[in-house]
Design a protein around this nucleic acid. Structure first.
Length: 288
DNA sequence: TGCCAGGCCTTCC
DNA sequence: GGAAGGCATGGC
């Protein structure tokens, strides 16, 4: 199998994969910027050296197209970053650490299930649960002599019971998962249809699913429905916004006030700004 | 031991 | 419509 090389600019593989938007990529060697993961039905090994991406996959068909789409490589992030760094000093400072972070275009169903699991949970445990679900119910794929598991399809999760989900470590979210799978099977929401809706209408639809509240809905829209204007607010974002924009270090700011501020100031780039602020605070531990 | 984690649901005003 | 309490489970 041949290695495929792609030129990129304004792209950081590490920050894009480690900023918390996805749960299944694995660093092979953190020093080498090399990761292995799954996009839909194929396994990919990707390494970044400077402006070059080196890609291998078990499926060569449409490989470039798949990678370009998943990593949003055809979108002009130079322009986006130039625009957001002019908004304020906080964003400008954050970008010094996290320039090249891109929003992924992930699979809708996988994102939905993963973010239902994410509620009141921590990232290592979310990753563990998603991995267990894949190992139990997803299709096995062999790549370079190793075994990997695709994220299960809707059909593959059709008969999974509450107890079986719980055995994957999802805790009290087990019932939400069963209900959501059944709701999608019965066409309560249909991916192709809801993706055509306005962001407000789409959110309203997602909120009808059990285990999907405002924050989870916004993450699903941001990470799998290409809605860059949504601004998911979790405990971290609440904290970072309170400190940076409301000058409050040890108190609460109303979510509505944070949301109003983000919508007004960050506008169509709110989701990208959110990721930079979130990742900077959580991982890089940088506060201005 | 107690608190927290990329919150949401139900119940009760 | 808003506040309060409960919720599985692992890490610190």
């Amino acid at each position: 199998m041949k290695e495929f090389v792609l030129n990129v600019e304004c792209f950081c593989l590490k920050d894009t994969l480690e900023c918390g938007q996805c749960f299944r990529w694995q660093a092979l060697d953190p020093e080498k910027n090399e990761y292995i993961g799954i996009i839909k039905d194929r396994v990919l090994k990707i390494k970044q050296e400077g402006n070059k991406l080196y890609i291998k996959s078990n499926v060569e068909e449409n490989l470039e197209e798949t990678v370009r789409h998943y990593f949003s490589l055809d979108e002009n992030y130079v322009e986006i970053e130039n625009r957001i760094c002019k908004i304020d000093e906080n964003i400008k400072n954050a970008l010094e650490n996290t320039s090249g972070l891109r929003l992924l275009k992930q699979d809708f169903f996988e994102t939905l299930i993963s973010y239902i699991i994410s509620a009141n949970n921590n990232i290592p445990r979310i990753k563990g649960s998603v991995q267990k679900i894949a190992e139990r119910y997803g299709k096995k794929v062999t790549f370079e002599g190793e075994e990997y598991y695709l994220f299960p399809t809707l059909k593959e999760l059709e008969k999974v019971t509450q107890k079986e989900f719980r055995e994957c470590g999802v805790g009290f979210r087990d019932a939400y998962l069963v209900q959501t799978v059944q709701d999608i099977l019965s066409h309560k929401i249909e991916e192709e249809e809801i993706k055509k809706l306005s962001t407000e209408e789409l959110r309203k639809k997602l909120l009808t699913l059990k285990g999907v509240g405002q924050k989870v809905a916004d993450c699903i829209m941001l990470f799998s429905c290409d809605r860059k204007e949504v601004f998911p607010i979790d405990v971290w974002v609440e904290r970072v916004m309170a400190i940076l924009y409301f000058r409050i270090n040890d108190g609460k700011v109303k979510k509505k006030d944070i949301l109003d501020y983000a919508n007004t100031m960050f506008q169509q780039d709110a989701g990208i700004v959110q990721q930079h602020l979130f990742y900077n605070m959580r991982e890089k531990k940088v506060l201005i």
